[in-house]
């Protein structure tokens, strides 16, 4: 896990601010930006994966059974998956 910005000092930075662990934003939690979250009605799911394709975060992963579920650590709750799902599997409900 990379140090958060708050803990970071200039001594921790590589020359030129090079980041040596590519793709390390996976550690960064964007899930707490969410004000609504996706709720799934999986009996209707066609397992087509359209939601995963259109997710701006790229945070919708395939479960072992072949369903597509958003990772709450990164999901910002935009609602695009709910809007685009052809089978109306997803509804957005207020984050508690």
């Amino acid at each position: 896990m990379a140090k958060s910005e708050n803990e970071l000092t200039w001594q921790d930075l590589e020359p030129g601010c090079i980041v040596t662990t590519p793709g390390n934003t996976t550690d960064y939690k964007t899930g707490d930006w969410r004000s609504q979250r996706p709720k799934y009605n999986l009996e209707r799911c066609l397992k087509c994966g359209v939601c995963a394709l259109f997710c701006p975060e790229g945070c919708i992963n395939k479960t072992p059974k072949g369903y597509f579920i958003a990772n709450p650590y990164h999901c910002k709750g935009c609602g695009i998956c709910a809007k685009e799902c052809p089978a109306y599997v997803i509804t957005m409900e207020e984050e508690s």
Binding site: N24, T26, K29, T30, W33, R34, P56, E57, G58
Partner: peptide
Amino acid sequence: APGHRACIGCGEV
């Protein structure tokens, strides 16, 4: 990778 800081629902990202 996910964890980028684009706004919620950004079409550009």
